[in-house]
Design a protein around this nucleic acid. Sequence first.
DNA 1: TCAAAAGTGTTCCGAATACACCCATGC
DNA 2: GCATGGGTGTATTCGGAACACTTTTGA
Lengths: 245, 245
Amino acid sequence: MNKMNKYFLSENNVPFQDYFNFGLSVDCVVFGYVGEEIKVLLVQRDAEPFLGNWALPGDLVPLDEDLADSASNVLQNLTGLENIFMEQFYTFGAVDRHPAGRVATVGYYSLVKSDNYHPIASSWVKETEWFSIKDLPKLAFDHDQILEKAVSTLKSRVKYRPVGFELLPTKFTLLELQALYEALLDYKFDKPNFRKKILSMDLLVQLDEVQANVSHRPAKLFQFDEMRYIELRKEGFAFDITVKG
Amino acid sequence: MNKMNKYFLSENNVPFQDYFNFGLSVDCVVFGYVGEEIKVLLVQRDAEPFLGNWALPGDLVPLDEDLADSASNVLQNLTGLENIFMEQFYTFGAVDRHPAGRVATVGYYSLVKSDNYHPIASSWVKETEWFSIKDLPKLAFDHDQILEKAVSTLKSRVKYRPVGFELLPTKFTLLELQALYEALLDYKFDKPNFRKKILSMDLLVQLDEVQANVSHRPAKLFQFDEMRYIELRKEGFAFDITVKG
DNA sequence: TCAAAAGTGTTCCGAATACACCCATGC
DNA sequence: GCATGGGTGTATTCGGAACACTTTTGA
């Protein structure tokens, strides 16, 4: 027994080494926005257990890799994307959540712009697919629960942080932004009021561009001003899209 | 090698078993409210590493214990308290965060009523003490970082959920509640307006009791109405104590 | 009677709401 | 012209902020 064991001994006197048999994994909930719907990227397993089942992209963390790095790496290996907004939301650690041993998993979610996103199926994955969060299959392991937690976390965070902009293409119209928020929060906003509120926040830059080839008045295109956001946060600015109680 | 390894193999082909050498721990940030100050319970280590240093109460998770149970058990072993509001806030998994091996730790915070709380030092702890979150010692491991994250999480959650009531004695006056929120949010509220706002939420029950032995007009005592809160949440009610931007 | 804190009422202002209306484009 | 969605202006309402005031107790 290692001399260090005493600092970690529980009442029941389990020796130190017995504690070091955990597996640690990360599971990524990748949100996208396609066709006015919030989607999530799932992978189909090509192996037991849960062969053929849909699951969240995830993997075991190597012993020599930081947790946050591991999350980025899993996403990158699976999707080829780098520098994606990514945030930890919850850790799941039920004893029997994994049939192969004791594995705790840390959930991360990310938001990607669907227009420059091209998923690549990795070795143990049969295929990848976007699913609407309103029409999900039964998932492997406890991934249903993980996904549900990710969705509720996203819905609550989106009200107080401009995470939503990550889901849209770089250039977007105000009505596209409104439709996104309506999908995220499941709430209809009044068009003039939504415009006023968003524009008064001073977070958008209006571009010298408009929509093309639309059979109605073309909308002006906007861009999220990240520098301005960082500055406003320093001043204690609170992004706040709340829905009527 | 286990047949299951292929489902978890990374690009670099590390075999399955090598992943299962993690330790998993929980660290508890126990908040209290004493003398109009937000305090946190720390323990002084009686052993290497970090002998003599203050640290968060925490312990390794046994392989056969659920994560959430482990958090309660650590708190109970250390404090004797049961059924305490307890919430996970973040998981820390840097490679070198623990000198004894690769240990990821899951942070939980809890809020306790100081009037019925009596900490008991456990075996590997020299003593326990409440520290104001405005005057903290240097902590062992990466506990500074964990505590900082807990504080920022508490400060943001307290605005949208009535967690604050957990810190007060069962019966309290409105000005005590106000002082608590002022300490939590580091903001001075206007007395009449704070009263109006809190009372309009319909979350408090006014008792037939007043303060005793005070050399001024005695304040009415109130109690948090948890049933009412659960009901209001169902209707989509949003508890909201926001401070001026 | 005075100090100290409890508790109330009222005005003012700005933000959110509701809603009516005009504009630009393709067909 | 007209359908379609883009975009603007305004009256009203509601809640928050500010602040002056009265009440009740102990000493």
